[in-house]
Simulated scan of single mutants.
Amino acid sequence: MDKKAIIQELRDWNDAVLFAQARSFLEPFGLTIRFDADVFDENERLATDCIALYKGGSVFEKEILYWINYDVIADRLIRGGDCSQAAYKEQMHINIFHVIGSALVEMFSDWYCQGDKAFDTLIDNLPEGALRSLLQGHCNPEQESALSEEFAACHWNNRDTDSALCRFCSQYLSQIVISDPTKCN
């Protein structure tokens, strides 16, 4: 398959994953997600080591803005010899959910110590580790990337309980329903 056709397949799978999984995952958080290359500068988009970008801070506007470098993914798929529908779907799911993971960590860490004692207690009761540290405001880009990668991979493989961030999201959503059942409807 030629690179142009692979890129089109990746775009199609991006749309499918957004429609089928990402938007429904984000809805209980009151968030949406949108692909938008224009919010990233040319240098960011031309970096060959970058597959997906999240526009930091966009989560606070209730819309996660991201961009995916289809060209780099297509090259990697061609080099790896796997240009199957399953590979396209997996790549898009993992990249989109990696972006979602980064946005959620940013959002949750910003909420910490902002007056919601129940939310702060939820974070403070997390086991010691990367997630607790990040959500308490200790910035570490490597830890955040690793946590988002784990979140995306576990979500892809239906192993949500293996991801600290997935478990925290479930706990947070459960807390919202308990405190105000109308918030998640």
Rank of each mutant, 00 (worst) to 15 (best):
D49A: 04
G57K: 07
C113H: 13
N140F: 03
W13M: 01
S102M: 13
T182D: 14
I178R: 14
L135W: 01
L18K: 02
E9P: 00
F119L: 13
L122N: 05
F19H: 14
D38L: 13
K117D: 15
G80E: 11
A152Y: 11
F168D: 06
I96W: 00
D160L: 13
G137S: 15
E63Y: 01
E142V: 10
H98S: 03
I33C: 00
I33N: 00
C154G: 00
E142S: 07
S24Y: 12
C166W: 00
D36E: 14
S102N: 08
S163Y: 02
H93E: 14
A37T: 03
N185L: 08
D160E: 12
H98Q: 09
G80A: 15
L126C: 05
D15W: 05
Y88L: 02
E9C: 14
D12F: 07
L165V: 07
S170G: 10
Y70Q: 08
S163E: 09
L77I: 07
K4Y: 04
Q114L: 12
Y88M: 01
I94S: 08
C139A: 13
S102Y: 11
L31A: 03
Q171C: 06
R34Y: 03
C83R: 03
F60D: 13
C166E: 05
A152P: 08
Y172V: 05
Q143R: 11
Y112M: 04
C166R: 01
Y66T: 11
R167N: 05
K55L: 06
Y70M: 09
R34M: 09
G137M: 10
K117I: 14
E61R: 07
F151A: 06
A87I: 04
K117P: 02
W67A: 12
Q136P: 00
D82P: 01
D110R: 11
L131C: 08
N157I: 03
E90K: 11
A86E: 15
F35A: 10
T121I: 04
E106W: 00
Q171I: 07
T161W: 15
T161Q: 14
I33V: 08
H98N: 10
I64K: 03
L26V: 07
V72Y: 12
V59E: 00
Q143N: 10
Q136W: 03
V59I: 10
D49Y: 06
N125R: 11
A52E: 09
N125S: 11
D36M: 09
F119M: 13
V177L: 13
F19S: 15
E42H: 12
A16E: 12
S84K: 00
T182W: 12
F60V: 11
A87R: 13
F60T: 08
A164T: 10
M107R: 10
G81Y: 13
F40W: 09
L18V: 08
L122C: 10
I51T: 04
N125P: 00
A47Y: 09
L18C: 05
I94H: 04
E63L: 02
I96K: 01
I68L: 09
C184W: 11
I176T: 00
D82F: 05
V59F: 01
V39E: 07
S170M: 10
E44S: 13
